[in-house]
Amino acid sequence: MLSFIIRRLLLIIPMALIVITLTWGLIRLAPGNFYDNEKNLPKAVVDNIKEKYGLNKPWYQQYGIMLWNTIRGDFGDSVKNPGRSVNEMIRTHFPYSATVGILAYILALIIGLLAGTTAALKQNSAFDYGSMSLAMLGLSVPNFVLGPILVLIFALWLFWLPTSRLEFTSGYILPVITLAGIYAAYIARLTRAGMLEVLRSDYIRTARAKGLDEKTVLLKHALRGGLIPVISFTGPALAALLAGTVVVEKVFAIPGLGNIFIQAIFNRDEPLILGIVAFLSILVMIFNLLVDISYAFLDPRIRYE
């Protein structure tokens, strides 16, 4: 197990480099440059810019420099916001996304697990249908619709909460609910499906047959197995949430990483895109590793050689 973890951790570095390479290629394929604007820049100014950022070198040299910078962990300055280093920008903007994301996921887990488990235990009851219909509604309403509706009600009609921005603690409420909605729905459905699966399995029947009380069966045996689909969903979901969910950050004007990232893509801010991709890809890979490890704990049938 330990050697498995170490091997995977070591793998992250070359994998991140492959991701960076592919992303770099994509950026270079995309038309346009960060300095393009409505106005044609004089050729001399473009030449100055190219010289400063080394864009007049052959591509393999540029690639080499970029790769070396990535390995050193220094992505240089954002080209769109000159004077601000990429590392500093990630440090500044990641906490916003992470706070909102973690809060939303905790909320989603609480709602989703409770609703999903209860629905599975009371299969075909009114609660089952009700909560699952609500979950479906949650899945059917995009968050760019849910967010503004919440804003309309709570900020513009009742004037209870701020419309946007995280200036006050109350500013977190609407973005967190908006973000949690769809994840709660996912988790509820996955938990229900997983639990139903497990409740029918042989080992639960065995456990029941052994005369264990229902609570132990449920918490010690069933929940553990039923959680597997939720866990495999949690890895990427949490990574995506930490990375910031663009829509929520846009709708609520949150200066999170997702918002910055989208703007970087539309601005062709190469150092910033690469920096964020490197950061996020490592984050995602670590989460995926954690997911794989947790499989082993939750389901004794899974083994890693």
Binding site: P148, L156, P162, S164, R165, V251, A253, P255
Partner: peptide
């Protein structure tokens, strides 16, 4: 000068007196 990108969000802020 709050940095707000979306027109709708900005309009909401105005309407709410922010």
């Amino acid at each position: 000068f709050p940095a707000v990108e979306e027109n709708t969000t900005r309009l909401n802020m105005y309407k709410a007196g922010e």
